[in-house]
């Protein structure tokens, strides 16, 4: 008998298990939350050390990015991310991992065409559309201000 793609789609869906959301979502909440808690602790620590609030915020980001890159280099970040999923992807640490992982790997192809060309293969879309969104936001802000002031 001939199997039609529609029938096969149903067969595949019946056989293939879905990701376990009841495990993944709580894990993402816990580990992602833990990263954010660490960020809050760092922020308070830097403020306690006498830094003004905005500078303390920058240092918090820098510290988290550094830790993420370090853990990526040691091969530990992927082990945490395997359980955390969005918990390690969404905070700034996920972005740092997305930049450092291709950079480490492209080293074998040299500094220019390897690291230089491939460093943003994962983070590139975030940078592009993040920048584009901020431009759109800026234009909207100008227009709104023009009519309200």
């Amino acid at each position: 008998m001939e199997i039609k793609p529609e029938l096969y789609k149903d067969m595949t869906e019946a056989v293939s298990p879905k990701s376990k959301s009841y495990v993944n979502i709580p894990m993402a909440f816990l580990i992602g939350g833990a990263i954010c808690l660490l960020g809050e602790c760092l922020l308070n620590l830097f403020e306690y050390m006498g830094l003004p609030k905005d500078e303390a915020g920058s240092w918090t980001s820098i510290t988290l990015v550094f830790l993420s890159a370090l853990l990526t280099g040691l091969g530990w970040y992927e082990r945490i991310a395997k359980h955390a999923g969005a918990g390690t992807l969404v905070p700034i640490t996920g972005f740092a991992n997305g930049v450092s992982a291709p950079a480490i790997e492209a080293k074998t192809e040299g500094w220019i065409l390897g690291v230089g060309a491939k460093i943003f293969t994962i983070a590139g879309p975030v940078i592009l559309y993040g920048t584009a969104a901020s431009v759109v936001y800026g234009i909207c802000l100008v227009v709104v201000k023009f009519f309200t002031e």
Partner: peptide, 17 residues
Amino acid sequence: ERQFRYPLSYGGQRPPT
């Protein structure tokens, strides 16, 4: 992994399939 998916140390989750 390098050719078809993500860099080795990129933190991602793999589905059961």
